[in-house]
């Protein structure tokens, strides 16, 4: 963790609330509303920095009580080992009710991004697995850590996002969302995805992690890692089906800017080994955080297509 000795959350006062206090208050209100209005909510836990912030906000919302719903991790089978280790440590130390769901059939059939291409692979291991997992448990509301600043189609996402029986999203038929009065009414089989971090930016997330000293996966911090170096891309060497041409595999001081599956998440060259250094790097960056995700750039408007199909 980075040094945060000189920084603390400002004590709330009537005089002036900081933007982080405003965002936190909004998110906690959303958590409490969903926990009170739905039969069986769940938090989708992806192990990344946004999930870590979401988890802390959920702890705060129900403090001193426990988080009154389980966490679901949709495991594609290709997540970084460090992510899985971190996930299990968090669940144990915080006493979380963590459920894991995998599309075992597809994995047994040998699904991987090299064989299927990223679109089909994501479809099976992420979207299908997510929908199956939600259905199998009968969850009627699922918290996700998506933010509106991540990608253009997400800028129009509601905080309570209605999904039909097939788990699909219709951007032209969203419920109007006024003030902070959320409409969570659904019919059997329908569900709501809830995005408590909608109004947070990437910088807000990092700043909050720093102030709150929230634990995150060590992959975010720079160190020497084994990478396939191909043009501008750094591809982590972790899965057996990912291998480079002779000379492409090197030790590179690098880190991950967002976490996904190891074959499809590029690393960046970096010396940022503390959170303040990560933030310094972030504010000097010239590309948005999802630019290193292979999947978002398959085709123009690709995220919107995935969302319509049920991807988060």
């Amino acid at each position: 963790m980075g040094s945060s000795a000189t920084l603390e959350m400002v004590v709330p006062s009537a005089a002036k609330l900081s933007h982080l206090q405003m965002l936190e208050a909004e998110s906690i209100h959303i958590f409490r509303e969903v926990a009170s209005e739905f039969q069986k909510p769940v938090m989708l836990y992806s192990i990344g920095k946004d999930s870590s912030v979401m988890l802390r906000l959920a702890q705060k919302a129900f403090f001193p009580g426990p988080i009154p719903f389980p966490l679901l991790h949709v495991d594609t089978g290709y997540k970084f080992n460090e992510m899985i280790t971190f996930r299990d440590e968090q669940a144990a130390s915080l006493g979380l009710d963590l459920r894991v769901w995998r599309n075992e059939q597809a994995l047994a059939d040998g699904a991987n991004p090299v064989r299927l291409g990223t679109q089909r692979c994501c479809g099976l291991l992420k979207t299908t697995a997510l929908l199956d997992g939600l259905r199998a448990h009968g969850f009627d509301a699922a918290f996700g850590g998506a933010r509106r600043d991540e990608e253009k189609s997400r800028a129009k996402e509601r905080i309570f996002s209605f999904r039909d029986r097939a788990g699909q999203w219709d951007p032209k038929n969203q419920r109007p969302e006024v003030w902070n009065h959320y409409n969570g009414r659904i019919s059997p089989g329908e569900s709501i995805r809830v995005f408590p971090l909608s109004n947070w930016t990437e910088l807000d997330i990092w700043h909050y992690i720093l102030l709150e000293e929230i634990p995150i996966v060590p992959l975010y911090f720079a160190k020497e890692r084994r990478m396939i170096v191909r043009a501008d891309s750094l591809i982590p060497v972790e899965q057996t089906f990912v291998h480079g041409l002779p000379g492409e595999e090197q030790w590179v001081r690098s880190r991950l800017r967002s976490l996904g599956c190891s074959p499809c998440t590029g690393a960046i060259r970096s010396d940022a080994d503390t959170i303040p250094k990560i933030i310094a790097e972030l504010v000097s960056f010239r590309s948005s955080e999802r630019a290193n995700r292979v999947i978002d750039h398959d085709q123009d408007g690709s995220m919107e297509i995935k969302k319509r199909e049920g991807y988060f």
Binding site: S3, T6, L7, V10, K16, L17, S18, H19, L20, M22, L23, D149, T201, E202, L203, H207, L210, L211, T274, P276, K277, I279, A280, E281, L282, V283, S284, F285, S288
Partner: peptide, 30 residues
């Protein structure tokens, strides 16, 4: 989002980032 003031570059010292964060923390929301 990103280049708040666009002042920082990656060679910036830890001291400067602390200053940046202190400023960041005083911002309100409109």
């Amino acid at each position: 989002m990103t280049t708040t003031g666009g002042m920082l570059d990656s060679e910036q010292s830890e001291f400067a980032i602390e200053e940046f964060l202190a400023l960041e923390q005083t911002k309100d929301l409109l």
